[in-house]
Design a protein around this nucleic acid. Structure first.
Lengths: 223, 223
DNA sequence: GCAAATTAATGATTTATTCAAG
DNA sequence: CTTGAATAAATCATTAATTTGC
C-alpha cells in the first residue's frame, strides 16, 4: 500500500474538470475511439487508462440519473401531498420513463465543440435530431477496416445510448467486436496452441452430476 | 443476411455437447486462459470465438440459476400450502441464500479432469477446498508476465465466482487488467500515435488530488 | 494541531434484465 | 420458445472528507 501503487485510478483535478465539462456539454457514452482520444488527452494531466474514462462516464451517467430520479420522486411526493387524489398514479412512471430516455438537449451545440474527439465524423446532423448526435458511424465511417478500438463488452456500450433502431446499433457493435475481439483475442483460435495435446478431448467422462447453486426469489412476471 | 454471414454464433451440435458436458462437469466460469483453450478446441468443430464461449457459460449459468430458483420457489409455495403456518418465513430466504452461495460439489473431481485446460496450474488443491478450484492464480502463477488473456471486464469475471476473500479476487483482476488493458488499450495513451512504445508499464505514478462532485444518499449500515 | 475513527463519494464488478435472431 | 448478446442497475470496496478525542 505504498503511495506509489494506488489500487484504483484517482483523477487529478484537471482530469476531473475536463471530464465534467464534457459531461455537462452532453457527452454521455463516448465511442471507443472517442475514449481513446479522451484518454490520450487526459493522460497529459496524469496517469489514466481508457477503462477509467469509460467507467467514469458510466458511473457518472448512472448516478446522475438516479439523482434525478430521486429528486423527481421527491417532487412528485410533495405534489401528491398537495393535490392528494387529483394526480393519477401513472404520472410518476411516465416521468421516470422520460428521464430514462431523454437525451441531453445541450448535446447539439456541445457536439460541435467536442467534435475534435470524433476523428472521422459522419455528416453532422444538420438539425434537430438530437437522438442521432452521438452516433459515430452514421454512414459507413467504419466501413474501412477494424475500428482499432479497445475491447470489452462494456466498451461497446460506448456506441449505444442512441435510440436509433436497435438493429443499427447491433450492427455497429458487431463491427466493433469484429475489430476488437479479432485483434485481441482471436489470434486464430484454432492455431492457438498448435503443439499442445489438445487432442480429442475425452475429458468429461461421465462425471456429471451438477447441482444448482443459487437462487434468490425472483418475482418474474410472466410476459 | 446470407447464410454465410450469420449475425450471431450458432453452436454446432458438437460444440454444444462439449460445452454442456463441461458445464455438467462443473465448469461454470472458466478462466481467461481456459476460455482460450476451449475456444481453440471447439473451433475444430466450427466457427467460434472466445466471446461465444464466455457468453455461453455466463448465460447458461444464469438461466440454470433462474430455472432452479423458479423450481424452488414453486416447491416452497407448495410446502407452504401444506404446512401453512408451520414453516417460518425465514426458511425461504435461507434456502435461497444457500443456493446463491453454494459451489457445485462436482467441481473437485471435474477439475482434475479438466486440468489440462489450465496451462500452468498451481498446486492442485489436494483436498476439500472446492472454493479454490477455479482460481487460476493460486500461487504466483501469473507472477511472470502479463496474463496474455483477453480483455474486457466481463472476461475477468472469468476468475470470479470463487468466494475467497474479496481482496484476493480483486488482486487477480487487477493483474488481469494490467495485462489486458495494457496490451490492448494502453499502448500508451499519451503517445498514442507515435511508434508503439508499449514497454515498462510503470503504471500508477504519483497521481493524486481529486475532487468530489455529486451526492447521493447512501444507507450504509454502520458496522 | 494531529492521528484514529466514521462517514460520504466514487471507481470497479457483478448480476439481473432486456433485446432480438433463429 | 430458446438463447446469444448487450446494457443498465445493484453492489462491492477503496479512497477522500470529515469528525472526534486527545
Amino acid at each position: 500500500m505504498s503511495p506509489s501503487t494506488s489500487a484504483r485510478w484517482c483523477p487529478t483535478p484537471e482530469q476531473l474538470m475536463i471530464l465534467e465539462e464534457m459531461y455537462r456539454a452532453g457527452v454521455r457514452t463516448p465511442s471507443a475511439s472517442q475514449i481513446q482520444q479522451i484518454t490520450a488527452h487526459l493522460s497529459l494531466y496524469g496517469k489514466i487508462e481508457g477503462k477509467n474514462v469509460f467507467y467514469w462516464f458510466q458511473n457518472h451517467k448512472a448516478r446522475d440519473r438516479q439523482k434525478m430520479r430521486r429528486k423527481l420522486t421527491k417532487q412528485l411526493q410533495q405534489q401528491q401531498q398537495l393535490f392528494q387524489q387529483h394526480v393519477s398514479p401513472s404520472c410518476c412512471s411516465l416521468c421516470h420513463s422520460y428521464l430514462d430516455h431523454h437525451q441531453c438537449p445541450a448535446s447539439a451545440s456541445a457536439f460541435r465543440q467536442l467534435s475534435y474527439y470524433s476523428p472521422s465524423l459522419p455528416p453532422p446532423p444538420s438539425s434537430p435530431l438530437p437522438s442521432m448526435i452521438y452516433a459515430p458511424q452514421g454512414g459507413n465511417t467504419t466501413g474501412g477496416g477494424q475500428m482499432l478500438t479497445m475491447d470489452c463488452n462494456k466498451w461497446t456500450e460506448t456506441i449505444r445510448d442512441v435510440p436509433r433502431s436497435r438493429v443499427e446499433m447491433e450492427k455497429s457493435m458487431m463491427k466493433m467486436y469484429n475489430g476488437d475481439w479479432m485483434m485481441v483475442l482471436d489470434m486464430d483460435p484454432s492455431e492457438f496452441c498448435p503443439a499442445k495435446p489438445l487432442k480429442t478431448l475425452e475429458l468429461f467422462p461421465t462425471t456429471s452430476t451438477n447441482l444448482g447453486e443459487d437462487s434468490k426469489d425472483s418475482a418474474t412476471q410472466p410476459v
